[in-house]
């Protein structure tokens, strides 16, 4: 491990089979760096890159850095891609998963922050939030409003403060892997996933992280789309409360 100062709370890490899930869509320029940074933090992490139907050389770039690569035959969207990673983690018996997006906005050097509460056994899922405490983050106005509306609704439903419902920078234990391998939402999956965790009696928390600008590629979210997604996600989380619980995979 690269950070000797952060060793104490991370001590249980070495004994766990651990996997980093890196969803990537046309990220040939950044995915290699993300994998290298994860290995710089802890070479014991296996990395699985889910190439979500990229039209560039994302798969090849990831393979060159020693990652497992699951290449989807066409674009499933972030939810389907990430769930593929959870299925892999569940089948292969991984006990701990972290998620880092392939565009480089999640800084693997900050993994100790999201790992600590999970390793301490305090929660099943820990999410890196851009908004807990202070920290610079810029984005479009429509997106900020959307994020705030969703954060407010999700906080109401789960009964604890959630500030960043769309963050994919997370650490998860085997209970959460089991749930998400069996059932994971589609667009903006993290919002509904937070509600699902609460409904299935799993514990989650947020820690403050600083996210980087995207290193490459273009964000898939435009203004009109964010409105459409917000309506759809609000409908999804409203209904998620009334759904029957997911059946775990064998």
């Amino acid at each position: 491990m690269a950070e000797p100062t952060a060793l104490a709370p991370l001590a249980p890490l070495a004994s766990l089979r651990r996997l980093a899930i890196v969803p990537a869509f046309n990220e040939e320029r950044s995915v290699g760096d993300v994998i290298a940074e994860i290995h710089a933090f802890d070479p014991g992490f296996d990395v699985v890159v889910i190439d979500d139907g990229s039209r560039d050389r994302t798969s090849a770039a990831a393979r060159a850095k020693g990652a497992h690569v699951l290449t989807l035959p066409f674009n499933l969207g972030i939810g389907g891609a990430v769930q593929t990673g959870f299925l892999f983690a569940w089948e292969q018996g991984y006990e701990l998963v972290v998620r880092c997006d392939g565009d480089g906005q999640h800084d693997p050097a900050q993994l100790p922050l999201v790992l600590a509460p999970v390793l301490a056994g305090e929660v099943d899922v820990c999410v890196g939030s851009r908004f807990v405490g202070e920290g610079g983050y810029r984005s479009s106005r429509a997106r900020r409003v959307g994020i705030r509306v969703l954060a407010w609704s999700v906080s109401r439903i789960v009964g604890q403060r959630v500030t960043d419902t769309t963050s994919g920078f997370q650490a998860l234990n085997r209970s959460a892997i089991c749930l998400f391998a069996a059932d994971y939402p589609h667009d903006y999956p993290e919002v509904e996933a937070t509600v699902m965790l609460h409904k299935h009696g799993l514990r989650s928390c947020e820690v403050h992280v600083t996210m980087r600008e995207r290193q490459a590629g273009v964000s898939s979210i435009t203004t009109l789309r964010s409105i459409y997604y917000m309506v759809k996600v609000l409908l999804s989380i409203g209904i998620a409360i009334f759904r029957r619980n997911a059946v775990p995979l064998p």
Binding site: H186, D187, V231, K232, L235, S236, I239, F242, R243
Partner: peptide, 15 residues
């Protein structure tokens, strides 16, 4: 709404 809840209809197609 019931079709969505019982997973027979995706939100995308229900709107």
């Amino acid at each position: 709404l019931e079709l969505i809840r019982s997973r027979r209809l995706r939100e995308r197609y229900a709107l």
